[in-house]
Design a protein around this nucleic acid. Structure first.
Length: 651
RNA sequence: GCCGCUGUAGCUCAGGGGUAGAGCAACGCAUUCGUAAUGCGUGGGUCGGGGGUUCAAAUCCCUUCAGCGGCACCA
């Protein structure tokens, strides 16, 4: 006999070997019917597996949080079956669950298109309806390899061969179809339900390796009920509406075009946001002890060789021949074969080291914090470009802190606190912190990397911050702390970063004189809070859905007249706002007030001051705030004052 | 860079071998109006670029560029 403990603490005795299903059945027929899996000592398992030892178990139902995971995982299996039935010769690879759904990667000479979706979904519904049990089998490695080889499933064979020799080979079968799978699965295909939808096809490399085969990935979403599915689809539609590329065009903030692809044309309104943001950051940095600098855009390749960029980063750089071009029509751009090259800077760090190296630095000069709104160019892969989020020319709110080793901790903490304060000013709370460690392609010794990684770890531990470790994702010169923010469509972008670097000062021979009169290497902290101003504005647009807080709004107030009789008064109101430094516009068009309200609302202007004959007589304005459908009548002087107050930046 | 899809007016989109379309926007005229679209009229395009097939190409084919969705890469 074994003792089974339930979530409520009650216990019952069962014969060893009892299954989760039998336990559920012994409690209530309805529970057995609703059961889709069982949690044994916190671990999810099949209902059909015998339980041999006393344990704590919970019966898992579709409604439980684990239910979704199971629905999606099972749905991946039936999608694979459906695809193989409809498209014979297609090889299956892997099909994990992801946020909101799952995908399955297939290998087929002719990739799928979205036109195939309807047929695949219909076949999936048939499989659900069929209601076959998911049957778990354990095979020997040899049998598994043999069977999959015979089926021509070369990718599965590779997977099995790479499984550790100690591991059992588990197979899950639904009807005639089966797949290599760790499990667990629900009892039968019927439990999946039909609240799923195929979403998109995409290419994906086998095992994430760009040197290997390109597979076709089908993404799908799956939920418990049609209502949940509909809600999710609706949410996607809503998210699309706040896409910064769409809002950027609609609000006339910026544009991109072919001839400068990957570089942004900032329109007057977009650049107002930039200027406000930069001014805010400048105040923040000055207050935190940074000195602002500006460094060259183009530097000789010798310089980049010394920094290590030429060797480890050149494929991301724009290299320019240092030759006078030929202007004779029809001839080559360069008469001679270029021998000397320059490069647009992809990073600001080496240049900041040059400033550090001017003159002699004493330990008393440290920490030296050099900040730059540095415009960098990176030759990004074409497929990587994405609106403002991923561009080829961008401006970092960059800074490099040169300090002694004993100052690393306090400087790291200072930076994390600054970042936190700034993110709070923008209302960001949902960022994730990652510690990214040494990559394969790197400079410097392992001892230095140990030191650097431990340094960052110590700082975040001390601050008690939650973080994940991302192995191998560091920069080539040092490990990083990355602050990851999600965009409207759920994509993750790195914004703030703190990188600890013992390498560059060494390579570029930066030193200071210590208390002991000896030369020492400073440590360099690379850091940015916004990351790239372009990306950060993109994130802001999506975060606020274009409805910027007053201090960032490109147009803070529009003064609109109701009829031309009130034009003079409107001009007066507008002038008073401008006087206070408010970004105000005047709308005297011979249009109905309805139209004016509509247009400025669509432009997401936060404050609309409407004036007509009544307001002129009373020296008031009718204030209509974005998002409200009413208005309030306020004395002109008060209206100007309160707006000026509200428009003050948070710092 | 790789796989797939897309590219027609400023924007959103229809048309898929036989004279280039709609709505909104723009411009003109009328309208002076109280909080999310006033009416009427006018102009606007070598259908992303290049090449080919054809009597004839926006439409079919090839190629190239860009955009979109992923992957790989990354602030």
């Amino acid at each position: 006999m074994i003792v089974i403990t339930f979530p409520d603490g009650k216990t019952r005795d069962y014969t060893a070997g009892v299954t989760g299903y039998e336990i559920a059945d012994s409690i209530a027929k309805s529970l057995a019917k609703a059961a889709i899996a069982v949690k044994i000592n916190g671990e999810l398992s099949d209902l059909s597996l015998p339980i041999t030892e006393s344990s704590t178990i919970a019966i898992v139902k579709r409604e439980d949080p684990e239910g979704l995971e199971l629905i999606r995982h099972d749905a991946a299996h039936i999608m694979a079956e459906a695809v193989q039935k409809l498209f014979p010769g297609t090889q299956v690879t892997i099909g994990p669950t992801v946020e909101n759904g799952f995908y399955y990667d297939f290998f087929r000479n002719q990739p799928f298109t979205t036109e195939d979706f309807e047929a695949i979904e219909a076949e999936m519904r048939r499989i659900v309806e069929r209601g076959d049990a998911f049957v778990r089998e354990v095979w020997t490695r040899e049998k598994a390899i043999e069977v999959f080889k015979a089926k021509g499933e070369n990718f599965k064979v590779e997977l099995i061969q790479d499984l550790p020799g100690t591991e059992d080979i588990k197979i899950y079968r639904q009807g005639d179809w089966f797949d290599l799978c760790r499990g667990p699965h629900m009892a039968n295909t019927k439990q999946i339900g039909t609240a799923f939808k195929l979403m998109k096809v995409a290419g994906a490399y086998w095992r994430g390796d760009s040197n290997r085969q390109m597979l076709t990935r089908i993404y799908a979403t799956a939920w418990r009920t049609q209502e949940e599915l509909d809600a999710h689809l609706h949410q996607l539609e809503e998210a699309e509406k706040r896409d910064h590329r769409k809002l950027g065009r609609e609000m006339n903030l910026f544009h991109l075009q072919e001839e400068a692809h990957g570089s942004v044309f900032w329109h007057p309104k977009g650049y107002e946001i930039w200027v406000a943001l930069e001014a805010y950051m400048r105040r923040r940095l000055r207050e935190d002890g940074y000195k602002e600098v500006k460094t060259p855009q183009l530097m000789d390749s010798r310089f980049w060789e010394a920094s290590g960029h030429w060797g480890k980063y050149r494929e991301n750089m724009f290299v320019v021949p240092d030759v006078v071009p030929n202007t004779n029509e029809g001839e080559k751009v360069f008469k001679e074969e270029p021998k000397h090259f320059m490069a647009l800077k992809p990073m600001n760090c080496p240049a900041h080291v040059q400033i550090f190296k001017q003159g002699i630095k004493s330990y008393r000069d440290l920490p030296l914090r050099l900040a730059e709104f540095g415009c960098c160019h990176r030759n990004e892969a074409h497929g990587a470009l994405h609106g403002l989020m991923r561009v080829r020319q961008f401006t970092q709110d960059d800074a490099h802190i040169f300090c002694r080793e004993d100052q690393i901790l306090s400087e790291s903490i200072k930076f994390c606190e600054l970042t936190k304060a700034i993110y709070q000013d923008f209302g960001f709370n949902n960022y994730v912190v990652k510690l990214e460690t040494r990559p394969e392609k790197r400079i410097g010794s392992d001892e230095l990397w140990d030191k650097a990684e431990n340094g960052l770890k110590e700082a975040i531990d001390k601050l008690g911050m939650n973080y994940e470790i991302s192995p191998g994702d560091g920069a080539f010169y040092g490990p990083k702390l990355a602050f990851i923010v999600k965009d409207a469509i759920g994509r993750e972008w790195g914004c703030a970063t703190l990188q600890l670097d013992f390498n560059l000062p060494d390579r570029l021979d930066a030193s200071y004189t210590g208390e002991d009169g000896q030369k020492h290497r400073p440590v360099m902290l690379h850091r940015a809070v916004l990351g790239s101003i372009e990306r950060f504005i993109g994130i802001l647009i999506e975060n606020f859905a274009g409805k910027f807080p007053m201090w960032l709004a490109p147009v803070q107030c529009v003064v609109a007249s109701i009829t031309s009789d009130a034009d003079d008064y409107a001009r007066k109101v507008h002038a008073q706002l401008k006087e206070k430094g408010i970004r105000a516009e005047l709308d005297l068009r011979n249009e109905k007030i309805n139209l004016k309200v509509r247009e400025h609302s669509l432009q997401k202007v936060p404050a609309l001051y409407v004036v007509g004959a009544r307001e002129e007589t009373d020296q008031t304005v009718a204030i209509r705030r974005l998002g409200s459908d009413g208005q309030s009548i306020v004395k002109l002087s008060e209206a100007v004052e309160s707006l000026a107050n509200e428009a003050k930046p948070p710092y």
